[in-house]
Write a protein that binds this DNA or RNA. Structure first.
Lengths: 239, 239
DNA sequence: CCGCTTGTGTTCGCTATCGCACAGTGAGCT
DNA sequence: AGCTCACTGTGCGATAGCGAACACAAGCGG
């Protein structure tokens, strides 16, 4: 079991001043998220919002023919369920657990109450939303202009940044679904990375052995997103 | 010259209750936006926000090598400059006028003041932002999975929805920049549409002659976005 | 230990799109 | 009227990614 105040491992909760946190603390509920679990279905209202701790959640756009693409990824730095406070209540996208782990959840109504107090929580969540927006925008560009190789690097780095270890539990098939490409394309790209000694993988387990090497290969999209998250959240000035 | 209260042709301003509007009305300034004009540069703070009336603004992600992709489009239904109230102040993307026309602008600080009163304006802008988010997400998917043909249809319909007439002043070269594809690709796709009798174009002027035909060819992305805008804004229930 | 399921590697032909080069052609300017 | 330049059409070869098919291999349950 993890120590108390574990929820501060979520960046948003940790950035919140004590006073504001006090309203929420009694209602934060620790839950386990399992690989593949869906936190939000297209068009369905969420009962809770989730603050991941060591889990990762993918936001996916699923099309009529079943093809999907990840439009953003949420980890310890964020929250799943922004449509609740944004006012739309639902979104057309799905939220699926991409890496199992813990998260804290909170009843949607409680989050809304806190949000509409128009205090620190509101400002924080809006800045986070803007960061998420940047991630989506950059994903759109990356989908258009960059090779599967580069996108795989971006995806690995984005995941790595949200994980406590350097190992991902993830099959090539699933990565392909996220990136919206063929599984064979991922096999090929991952093969290149392995040959180059940057990663080693093995039936659903990918270990990054040379992070700098990945950073050297990745397209600019990764850095743009990372810089924006840093700017908007790490340098967050409470009030 | 357009009639007074012209600014109500912007959906956001028109949805605002009179009381709230009263704060802003004296400060709304009508401006002309010219084709290609930039309203916002990457990383630069905007002095004003813009509420388009009959103009269209594209939000573009520009990469280091100069290649670009449109990530969303804003017309009479929206506002340019969401980063001001979202708290980030800047974005990594550019906002470029895609179709000349009028807009009302408002000093950034005034908008922020109104936003942080946490009244109707805030709720409205947040719902709009969520709609914008959906547009970006769907653009990302569309970039990944759909053909240039389909994307051109989507782009034409999105533009058409924001224009008072059925004619766009737009070269194939510019459309290519928006979609992030080659100019030749647009020439070819546009040729098909013309042959099919859906559009007729002529040196920078595109006229849509059969809108239903476009809707029959477009991918689902258009409908998803449109439905979400309708849901979030047209059915907007003030408070 | 066997056999099944799941994950990975590889091949082949196909298509959309790219990058480039160059040829028309219309609109507006002088 | 004639020029010029921006816009459009077209035709290459090159290539990345697709779709389908199949072989292999590793872990798992019985």
């Amino acid at each position: 079991m993890l120590e108390p105040h574990d929820f501060k491992k979520n960046a948003l909760l940790s950035l919140l001043p004590e006073d504001d946190l006090a309203h929420l603390r009694p209602h934060l509920e620790k839950v386990t998220l399992t690989l593949g679990q869906s936190l939000s279905e297209s068009g369905r209202q969420m009962s809770h919002v989730y603050f991941p701790v060591d889990s990762i959640v993918s936001l996916l756009c699923v099309m009529e023919n079943g093809a999907s693409t990840e439009i953003a990824v949420v980890g310890y730095e964020g929250i799943v369920g922004i449509s609740l406070f944004m006012g739309g209540e639902t979104t057309p996208s799905r939220a699926v657990v991409q890496s199992a782990g813990y998260a804290y959840r909170l009843k949607g109504q409680l989050l809304k109450n806190e949000f509409y107090r128009a205090g620190s929580m509101q400002r924080l969540l809006l800045r986070y939303t803007q960061a998420l927006l940047t991630q989506m925008a950059q994903t759109a560009v990356c989908n258009r202009h960059h090779s599967v190789d580069q996108q795989l690097c971006r995806w690995l780095l984005l995941s790595l940044d949200r994980l406590p270890s350097d190992e991902l539990v993830m099959t090539q098939e699933l990565i392909a679904n996220m990136l919206g490409v063929r599984r064979e394309g991922v096999t090929e790209s991952a093969g290149k990375l392995q040959k180059a000694g940057l990663i080693s993988y093995n039936r659903g387990h990918i270990k990054v052995t040379n992070r700098l090497g990945l950073e050297a290969r990745v397209c600019e999209c990764y850095a743009v997103v990372k810089r924006e998250y840093d700017r908007l959240l790490n340098h967050y000035d409470v009030m």
